[in-house]
Amino acid sequence: MKKLNYYLTIGFLGLVLLSTVGLYLPQYRGAEQTLFLEIHKDGQLHQKIPLSTAANQEIKVTDEMGHYNLIEIKAGQARVKQADCPNQVCVNAGWLSKPNQITFCAPNKLKIKLTGQGNNLDATSY
């Protein structure tokens, strides 16, 4: 019992180490694949766009209440450029360019997500 704080500190250091590994691990996965941009609104798929071939464009998603998110596609990357939500978490998330990257706007219930097709790790390891 006396060494509780000692063990806890070691536990926290281990957690940080594990998280650092977890932070850099996904970046080594599947660099070359066709990326799709999925826009979900209110939990349903709103639009799916092949990102690598899409032209530079801006998509505005507006709901019945008049709240909007402006999504920008440029050079194979996507981001939320503008939103009228109070906390701006989705805007601050910046550019998404890798598969399985995601950003979520809770007030407007809008979610954008990059998905890869085909060449996953399981397929290439053979």
């Binding site: 594990l18 998280s19 650092t20 939990g43 979520f104 809770a106 219930k109």
Partner: peptide, 22 residues
């Protein structure tokens, strides 16, 4: 957040949140 978004992928934020929490 993951409940609101119906998205388990959001748990990929776990490492950065754990480091910042410590």
């Amino acid at each position: 957040a993951s409940w609101l978004a119906h998205e388990l992928l959001l748990y990929s934020l776990l490492p950065i949140l754990m480091i910042s929490a410590v």
